[in-house]
């Protein structure tokens, strides 16, 4: 099992009205992740320490937090990759309203998603209601569909985190979501106007923090946001493509 060594965790305790960091010390053994430590603290000394989690295997995206200031999944952060000679800080995500301790209210994200126009496929290709798509064409979309909705990208995005453009800026998660719909081989909906004026993709200044924190290693900025920005340019800003459209009616 390996030896157990004591590590101190500095965990945020409190709710919307206030709170403070509190120190807890617990024994760490080989292979433990931060979430294990939090569970151990719950079982040993703080049964009411609020912490959202679910699968504990990096697949559901529930246990998002900021470990030593970095947005990460607690279940995928191994203790042996953290410097434990000093206390390990665990904070809730800073971009969303706090409920209690490590749990934040992420419901805003669900509201945003609802407003994005839904998938609208073309007519089925085959009599049994199915479609034909090439693997090469679906791969681009499949990357975005790996998203586990942990909202770490939303947390780290300074447009939300610092500038609080929550109502008008939908954030990286919803750009991947939109990209996945827009680039879907079957989709016939047009969301470019929405991207420009409701999701305000123009607020993004491509500093790529979202890509850096993504636990699913989705290349959010280069593969989703920038291609969407380019499509928005085609539609709204590029005089040449606009000119071409006049001569090529019926494309949209």
């Amino acid at each position: 099992m390996g030896e157990s060594r004591d590590v101190t965790f500095r965990v945020w305790r409190g709710d919307a009205s206030g709170g403070a960091l509190k120190d807890y010390t617990t024994g760490i053994t080989t292979g433990m992740v931060v979430l294990d430590a939090v569970h151990q603290i719950q079982a040993e000394s703080a049964p009411d320490l609020a912490c959202r989690w679910n699968c504990k295997a990096g697949k559901c995206g529930s246990c998002s937090a900021e470990i030593n200031g970095k947005p990460r999944l607690m279940c995928m952060t191994r203790m042996d990759e953290i410097d434990t000679s000093v206390p390990v800080t665990i904070l809730p995500m800073q971009t969303f309203p706090l409920i209690r301790d490590l749990v934040t209210d992420v419901s805003w994200n669900y509201e945003v998603k609802k407003r994005i126009k839904k998938f609208r496929p073309r007519k089925p290709d085959n009599a049994d209601g199915s479609w034909n798509m090439a693997q090469a064409d679906v791969e681009r979309v499949q990357e975005f569909r790996k998203c586990i909705e942990c909202f770490l990208c939303q947390d780290v995005c300074h447009v939300l985190r610092e500038h609080e453009r929550h109502p008008e800026f939908s954030g990286p998660r919803h750009f991947i979501y939109t990209a996945q719909l827009e680039m879907h081989p079957l989709d016939t909906e047009d969301r470019l106007g929405q991207l420009k004026d409701e999701q305000n993709i123009g607020y993004c200044n491509i500093t790529k923090c979202c890509t850096k924190v993504c636990p699913e290693h989705i290349t959010i900025t280069d593969n989703a946001i920038i291609p969407l920005k380019e499509r928005v340019v085609d539609e709204f800003y590029d005089p040449m493509t606009r000119l071409f459209r006049i001569f090529k009616p019926g494309k949209k």
Binding site: P121, G129, S130, N132, Q135, V138
Partner: peptide, 18 residues
């Protein structure tokens, strides 16, 4: 098949089927 009508993207055969 209904899942695909709702936006699921399964891996494909060389002929483009699920």
């Amino acid at each position: 098949r209904e899942l695909e009508a709702w936006g699921a993207v399964m891996d494909r055969t060389p002929k483009g089927k699920i």
